[in-house]
Computed example of a mutant assay.
Amino acid sequence: MSEKNLLVELFVEELPPKALNKLGEAFSSVLFETLKYQGLTAENAIVTTYASPRRLAVHATNLLAVAPDKTSTQKLMPVSVGLDADGNATPALIKRLQGMGLTDAAVANLTKQMDGKNEALFLAVTQKGVSLKDGLQTALNDAISKLPIPKVMAYQLADGWSSVNFVRPAHGLVAMHGNQVIAVTALGLTAGNQTQGHRFEATMSPVVLKNADTYAEQLKTEGAVIASFAERRAEIVRQLNAAATKQNLKPIEDEALLDEVTALVERPNVLLGQFEEIYLEVPQECLILTMKANQKYFPLLNSDGKLTNKFLIVSNISPDDPSAVIGGNERV
């Protein structure tokens, strides 16, 4: 059977930042496990989760176009009920077979097996394997319905009549098996092979995906988006440390803040800001709290662990001249 890699992306308006990572993991996990339950995944399948402020996506390797058929043995009834003294089918057995869409000819295919202390009639049933399109539709519906959404909103679709409920309005759906589009639907959308990049810095709009495997790279080069939450987080850490080292300072460590800013930007750009030193007369705990909680800044500390008048901004844009961005943040 044909095995190719699968990509599914749901493109939406900005997702709740404190819930983004959890939403991404849940979307990926439920979608893959539902595909696996239907027999559409290979044993060596590898799943990669993507989550950025405006998208939830999953890439899975080695997905089958059609699941293999499954054969199971189904118990029908005790032999004493299904067959008469001459071994012929009773009306009860015929009725049971008809209820399963079978004719009297199926009696010849029945087997007798012990079921506890009594002998029973069993029928070997072959269940045709589900197609990837049907299986993915089930998995997508399941993944969306089971998302741990903090608060659902209702919004109207483009037809002006229908409405759906989701965490944020959805504007795009991608589903690709290799380079083939799988026309599943969700939230009033039909899947294609196009997505959107950064609101301001994408070099291509839309980003037309070549196949399931080029998703992350095309988003990065054409869309100016780092789709992976983990990769984006690591890039922020790298830039924070590099910027702080240049000042012979160190950024405050706060894992929750790091997760939150990772969920706020699609391509991070760390900038250095500062405020007047006179404000250092305010207790540093108060300054640190307001910088982290309200502005999402990373305060910079000296070697003694004391707050300085410098801080780091994780911006979502990378202008040639960042002075306006820095100045705006310094005035806050």
Score class of each variant (00 low, 15 high):
K4L: 07
L10S: 02
L15F: 14
K18D: 15
A19W: 03
N21L: 10
L23Q: 01
S29L: 13
F32C: 01
L40W: 00
T41P: 09
A42F: 03
E43C: 08
A45V: 05
R54N: 15
R55D: 05
L56F: 03
V58Y: 06
A65R: 15
Q74T: 12
M77C: 12
P78A: 08
G87A: 03
A89E: 13
L102R: 07
N109F: 04
T111Q: 15
K112E: 15
Q113S: 12
E119Q: 14
A120N: 13
A120H: 15
L121H: 07
F122L: 08
T126Y: 05
V130Q: 11
L132R: 04
L132T: 02
K133M: 13
L140M: 05
N141R: 09
K146I: 00
P148Q: 02
P148L: 00
P148K: 01
K151I: 08
Q156C: 10
Q156N: 13
L157D: 01
G160F: 03
S163W: 11
R168H: 14
R168V: 09
M176Q: 11
H177Q: 12
H177D: 05
G178N: 11
N179A: 14
V184G: 05
V184I: 09
A191M: 02
G192D: 15
G192L: 10
Q194D: 12
T195F: 11
T195S: 15
T195A: 15
L209Q: 13
T214Q: 06
E217C: 07
E217R: 10
V225H: 09
V225Y: 09
I226R: 02
S228R: 02
A230I: 13
E231Y: 12
R233N: 15
I236S: 04
N241T: 04
N248G: 07
D254E: 12
A256I: 10
L257T: 04
D259V: 11
D259M: 11
R267V: 05
P268Y: 02
V270Q: 01
F275I: 09
L280R: 02
Q284W: 03
Q284Y: 01
E285R: 01
L287S: 04
I288H: 01
T290F: 04
A293L: 14
Q295K: 12
F298R: 00
N302H: 03
S303I: 06
T308Y: 04
N309L: 04
L312Q: 08
I313L: 14
V314F: 11
I317R: 12
I326E: 04
I326F: 06
G327K: 03
V332Y: 09
